[in-house]
């Protein structure tokens, strides 16, 4: 269907500028996952390496590492680099 476009001039909305307020949080990249990493807190020595190396900021540090599965893409860099192998992973998609 075709339509004629009519916009009114808007000084605020018409300029391509956006606030840096992490609005990308509405993109649920967790749905990309094939493998799901899980932290075994009994083995975790709280070295902070997984938190530092997560490329997508899906691991936050709350005294211990916490994976946010809304955003975790399942790259498994955390699991591969944990010095005590405290992160297990399972195939989420069959």
């Amino acid at each position: 269907m075709s339509k004629v476009l009519k916009y009114s001039y808007d000084f605020e909305k018409g300029v391509p500028v956006m606030p840096a307020n992490a609005s990308a949080r509405k993109n649920k990249t967790g749905t990309w996952r094939i493998w799901k990493p899980e932290i075994n807190y009994d083995k975790c020595v709280k070295c902070k390496i997984c938190f530092t190396l997560c490329p997508h900021g899906a691991i936050s540090w709350k005294g211990k590492p916490v994976i946010d599965y809304t955003f975790c893409k399942g790259c498994l860099i955390c699991a591969d680099n944990c010095p005590v192998k405290a992160i297990n992973f399972e195939r989420e998609v069959k």
Partner: peptide
Amino acid sequence: PLVQGPAVLRPEPYTYFRNQHHQA
């Protein structure tokens, strides 16, 4: 903090911004 000059890879908002530019 502001993001200026962002990518607008969707045709509808892109057209909107170009239209605003023309009106200005």
